[in-house]
């Protein structure tokens, strides 16, 4: 078995090809009755195209139930995609198995939403961090401890010797999330997928954790896929943002452009829902579209957003889904008929 190289591996993708490239990605979950009769399916991810360059930080924004976590899990290889392809570093992930899949997993770090849940409660930090190293064949206790100490120092948990002996419940939420990030960095990945990494943390430590992620992402030139429901945490921490609605990407643009000149009515709704820390806001009526997030079992026809869209065009929006690449600007893509 090959030991992972101790140095950061530069991405091997051919020039011009992004590190991660998903095309027409579908992830459906079948609903069964009595265990075998198909009665429908949850279309969590439906036709997502996504690229992530080496060293690029991208956010996927959307409300709960829009399929963004399923997208993350599909990209991690935890769900098998129903359709479409994912290529990482030039290698297709479809049908990858055994050692190749394991090698891919060493190159992708995963940061989850609930830091306490993400750490096995019966292991101490030393053990938790040793697990990925053991699994990927890092032999030698001394070598493992050296790498654990490095990772702990990198996420600001010093002195590392103190932390190593503790159990997850003895750490604060922020410290737990730092351990999770340290675990994601241990195998020196090329990409990190962070699924709502701060939504369960106290507001006071959110910025610290986001800045930590941004810092390690820049230092190691990692690709970062940051999944969030909160547009307000996006601005300073990523280069590009994607807005997801009903299993589809509805808009993607560089983050400043997206926040300043959003093209999709849904993005506008998200932006207007951003809170200002002002008590008067509680009474102010905002222009937020009513209605529920779309059902992923029986999604609306045409544009998924049309039942809630203030600009819906009769006879157009509910009939035909908009193609995802209307371009109001060169690097700004919107899936909305308004931009036809």
């Amino acid at each position: 078995m090959t030991t992972p190289q101790p140095s950061t591996r530069p991405p091997q993708a051919a020039p011009g090809e992004p590190l991660l490239c998903a095309e027409g990605l579908h992830t459906h979950f079948e609903l069964r009755q009595w265990g075998f009769v198909r009665v429908g399916s949850v279309r969590a991810v439906e036709g997502v195209d996504l690229t992530l360059g080496a060293g690029e930080a991208v956010a996927v924004v959307g409300e709960s139930g829009c399929g963004k976590s399923s997208l993350a899990r599909t990209l991690l290889g935890l769900h098998r995609p129903t359709g479409g392809t994912v290529r990482f570093d030039g290698t297709p992930l479809n049908g990858l198995s055994g050692r190749a899949l394991k090698r891919y997993r060493a190159r992708v770090g995963y940061v989850q939403q609930d830091p306490y849940g993400a750490l096995p409660p019966f292991m101490d930090i030393q053990r938790i961090l040793a697990e990925p190293l053991i699994i990927h064949g890092v032999r030698g206790r001394a070598e493992r401890e050296r790498r654990i100490d490095t990772a702990l120092a990198e996420v600001g948990l010093t002195p590392a010797a103190d932390t190593r002996r503790k159990f997850p419940h003895q750490l604060s939420g922020g410290q737990q999330q730092r351990v999770v990030i340290a675990r994601a960095l241990l195998l020196r990945p090329a990409m990190i997928i962070a699924d709502e990494p701060v939504s369960m943390l106290d507001a006071s430590v959110r910025v610290e954790i986001l800045e930590l992620l941004r810092r390690v992402q820049r230092e190691h030139r990692l690709a970062l896929l940051y999944i969030t429901h909160d547009l307000s945490t996006v601005r300073h921490y990523v280069d590009r943002a994607l807005v997801m609605y009903g299993g589809r990407i509805v808009e993607q643009a560089p983050v400043t452009d997206l926040l300043a000149r959003s093209g999709h009515p849904y993005t506008e709704a998200l932006l207007s829902a951003l809170g200002d820390p002002d008590a008067d806001n509680a009474r102010r009526q905002r222009e937020v579209p009513g209605g529920e997030p779309p059902s992923l079992v029986h999604p609306p026809s045409g544009c998924r957003f049309h039942p809630r869209c203030p600009h819906a065009m009769q006879g157009k929006c509910e009939v035909e889904p908009p193609p995802p690449d209307f371009r109001p600007r060169a690097d700004h893509r919107v899936a909305c008929w308004l931009h036809e």
Partner: peptide, 26 residues
């Protein structure tokens, strides 16, 4: 369904390891 088991899969733990080291100890 615990997140730590999903995390273990994500860093490459195999079935036997998950059963013996992550499920049983709980």
């Amino acid at each position: 369904e615990a997140p730590y088991i999903e995390a273990a899969r994500a860093y490459g733990a195999g079935n036997a390891r998950i059963i013996l080291r992550y499920l049983v100890p709980r």
